[in-house]
Amino acid sequence: MVPLWVFLMVSAALFCIGVFGVLARRNGVAVLMSVELMLNAALMNIVAFWRYNNPTEVNGLAFAAFVFVVAAAEAAVGLAIIISVYRNRHSIIPEEADTLKG
């Protein structure tokens, strides 16, 4: 069996690629895709820790299932906002959507 830390390394690499995408991409949809990558890295960590440390308990599985819920809600609302901003301002660059002031 592959040791736990190798899984953690892969998910850390996935997370960092996601971080790069969020910081460097100027396109809203691409930023959201990178956020999905980061979420998946976290998900993989949860599953790996569940499998190696507590495989007989159901907590890890349940936690991962709730991560899917959050990921779905995030994608749905995030993309809706991007579409809405695009329709109103004809731009999908997050930095340009700066008219929301208190």
């Binding site: 299932a65 899917f68 819920v69 779905a72 994608a75 749905a76 993309l79 809706a80």
Partner: peptide, 12 residues
């Protein structure tokens, strides 16, 4: 969007 929400619901 509605499909996605129902899909996740079915998963649970």
């Amino acid at each position: 969007l509605i499909f996605l929400v129902f899909d996740v619901e079915m998963v649970l």
